[in-house]
């Protein structure tokens, strides 16, 4: 039995893909509903994983880095829910499909995983910038169908077993599953709490509560943004949620200086 498990294990290690493929995202700017009208945020060119990191990939990671196993993780870096949907330390079990996004991982754990691969978490602005695209447009936020599509997911409970990460539809950039599968960690998720430092209304909790939307009726309809802000605001770095996963990002290579 043990041999079989080990054998299986060896196979898993061998076949686990080394890295999630990435796509290059041309930088640009976008407006967030929680900012004052007319203000935009700049995003530099970067690379982003086309899908979330999967259970199988995360299993390979904890195998190589036993300090991140469920039984051994430091409570300072992940709460009691860490990998709770797995059957064991190195066993996924029926609730964690190998190709489904890994969830119940803390912000610290996600960072540790990506560091090994020379990647990092996307920033909040990077994530939001790419998440504004649908199949045809870079910014589909004004499109009622796009909005409805996102909201439909928010108002459905999560399935017990998540589907495979690469089965989700891709947006214009070829990035899959930003909406409709799981929430995702961003490197500075904390930043959404203040709603943006350049605001002048002087009320840090304003945008999160009733008044926030009312102050700018043009943006009041972006419920999806409000919900993401609310979710991020409820998190702490150690939290592990059943519906929260992550994907990697990378800075774009520095542009080659043209020779004078």
């Amino acid at each position: 039995m043990i041999h079989r498990v080990l054998l299986l294990f060896g196979c898993l290690l061998a076949v686990a893909p080394a890295e999630v493929p990435m796509v290059r995202i041309e930088g640009g700017s976008y407006a967030r509903p929680l900012e004052k009208s007319g203000q935009t945020r700049q995003v530099a060119t970067f690379s982003l994983d086309v899908r979330q990191v999967t259970n199988a990939e995360y299993l390979a990671f904890v195998t190589e880095h036993p300090e991140w196993r469920r039984s051994r993780v430091n409570r300072l870096f992940a709460d009691e829910s860490y990998l709770r949907h797995w059957t064991g330390d190195s066993e996924l079990g029926p609730l964690a499909a190998p190709e489904a996004p890994v969830t119940n991982v803390s912000w610290f754990a996600a960072r540790a995983f990506l560091k090994v691969q020379g990647k990092r978490l996307p920033t909040l602005d990077e994530w939001e910038f790419v998440a504004r695209a649908d199949e045809r447009q870079i910014d589909a936020t004004g499109d009622p169908e796009f909005r409805k599509h996102i909201l439909a997911w928010y108002s459905k409970p999560a399935p017990e077993v998540l589907p495979a990460a690469d089965t989700m539809p891709a947006n214009l950039y070829g990035v899959r599953g930003l909406h409709g599968l799981v929430w995702e960690w961003t490197s500075n998720f904390v930043a959404s709490m203040s709603g943006g430092e350049s605001r002048s209304d002087g009320s840090p909790d304003g945008p999160l509560f009733c008044g926030g939307a009312a102050t700018d009726p043009n943006k009041a309809v972006e419920y999806a943004d409000f919900m993401r802000v609310a979710l991020r605001s409820s998190l702490q770095g150690t939290f592990c949620l059943g519906g929260l996963g992550f994907r990697g990002a990378k800075d774009a290579p520095a542009p080659i200086e043209p020779k004078p």
Binding site: N188, V190, M193, S233, L235, Q236, G237
Partner: peptide, 14 residues
């Protein structure tokens, strides 16, 4: 970055 994360741990109760 870690400090930022820990800060985040406190801010929800702002």
């Amino acid at each position: 970055v870690i400090a930022l994360g820990l800060l985040g741990a406190l801010i929800p109760c702002y």
